[in-house]
Each structure stands twice: as C-alpha cells, then as structure tokens.
C-alpha cells in the first residue's frame, strides 16, 4: 500500500508517493536524499534522528512518513542561509560542541526546537530539552556551552 504524501519539507512544498511502512527517517535519507539526519540506535533511545515537526522535536526513526502529511518538517539542512550558519550551528562550531559529529544534527535540531519555543531558556531547561539526545564524545559540557552561545547569537538577531 502507498499514499500520496504532501508536506512542507525545509520550507518547500513537496509531494511524494510513499509506502505505508516507510519510516520518516528513510524517507528523508533514501528517498529525498537528505542524509544530515542520522540513524543511531534505531529504537528511539539516542536522538540522532531528531527532526522538527511543526517546530516540535520528534524522532524520525519511530514515525511513519505517511503520518506527517500536511505538516511542516525541518531537518538540519534547513538551517543557515546563503552559506551563513544559523545561531545553533555557530554555537556548536565555535564552542566545540561537536567531536565525532554523529549525534550533532540531533542535538542541533533539539536545540533549535527549544529556542523556537523558548528563546531564553535556563540551564535546567536546556538540560531537560536535550535529555533525549546521547553524545558519547563531549561529556555534554561543551554542548551546553554551545547552546548558551547560540542563545546570545539569537538575541543579537541570528536565526536559531
């Protein structure tokens, strides 16, 4: 069985025929070719596959592509404009919030989701918002610093 999927992906309207049993993660990576979203644990425990659905961070490895019909989906590729990094991307780059980089797209999308609904989060709110993402390299300290830096950049007018 297949369905016609209409959605807004990274700001652009798109229509695709998708099988009922296609996961959003594989729709993005294999069908559309956006490989920024990563496959991690495959079981909803690591957060590497996090994307924004109507600005809410969700796990694309546990969602069916057909279930985002009519929704707005943003992946890490949606960030930044004209070669300029977004606030969260700059935060992770400049404060060394990324080492091997595999978890980074997930962390960035969780952080962007946080800043879009709460532009001035407290330390506890940052930690709570990133609670569903795992990083085995950084020890998280640099990641928290990266998000704090992104908050400053966002206040100075850079898009999250």
């Amino acid at each position: 069985m297949a369905q016609l999927l209409q959605l807004t992906l990274n700001g652009r309207a798109r229509v695709d025929a998708v099988p009922d049993n296609l996961l959003l993660l594989y729709y993005l990576r294999e069908l559309v070719g956006l490989t920024g979203t990563k496959t991690g644990c495959d079981g909803g425990e690591c957060g590497a596959c996090t994307v924004l659905i109507d600005d809410e961070p969700r796990l694309s490895c546990l969602m069916l592509a057909a279930s985002v019909a009519g929704r707005r989906v943003d992946t890490v590729e949606s960030l930044g404009e004209d070669g300029q990094l977004s606030a969260v991307q700059r935060g992770f780059h400049e404060k060394l919030g990324s080492q091997c980089g595999y978890c980074t797209p997930g962390f960035i999308m969780s952080s962007v989701g946080l800043l879009r609904r709460n532009p001035r989060p407290t330390d506890d709110e940052i930690r709570a918002a990133l609670g569903g993402n795992i990083c085995r390299c950084t020890g998280y300290v640099k990641i928290i610093e990266a998000v704090k830096h992104a908050i400053e950049l966002h206040e100075a007018g850079v898009e999250p």
């Binding site: 957060g47 796990l59 918002a129």
Partner: peptide
C-alpha cells in the same frame, strides 16, 4: 514519561 521527543509524540 520517557524523553522530551517521546513526550512530543
């Protein structure tokens, strides 16, 4: 319940 993304879903 679970983590932030799970609660959104």
């Amino acid at each position: 319940i679970a983590g932030p993304m799970h609660r959104n879903m």
